[in-house]
Amino acid sequence: MSEQNEKAKHDEHAHHIVSPKVYVVILIALLVGTALTVWASFIDLGFWNPIIALAIATAKATLVVLFFMGVKYSTKLTKLTVGAGIFTFLTLVSMTLADYISRAWGSW
């Protein structure tokens, strides 16, 4: 039994084990976030509706990535990989949209 504990400790040393308490807190935060975003969508805020919905979605996604996926406790390399993915995705969206938006401006 003690040997098993020791082994478990060794594994813990190799990488961080997040405690279930954190997971429960994150779960509650995500559920609250969902309730909040649905509630907000029922109120007519005009221009702000999509922004609030996407902001809450991003907050929820960030919680999942940081805690459920453990990026908060991971190496810089993992953080960089996640960052590279987001950066490339934003490049694709923003530069494509830039073309579509500026098409409406007409010629010089």
Binding site: S41, G46, N49, A53, A57, K60, A61
Partner: peptide, 17 residues
């Protein structure tokens, strides 16, 4: 799950008004 969080916002929520 993350993909769905965005799909939910983009498809269901942002165009209700």
């Amino acid at each position: 799950d993350v993909i769905w969080i965005y799909l939910f916002a983009l498809l269901y929520l942002i165009s209700r008004h």
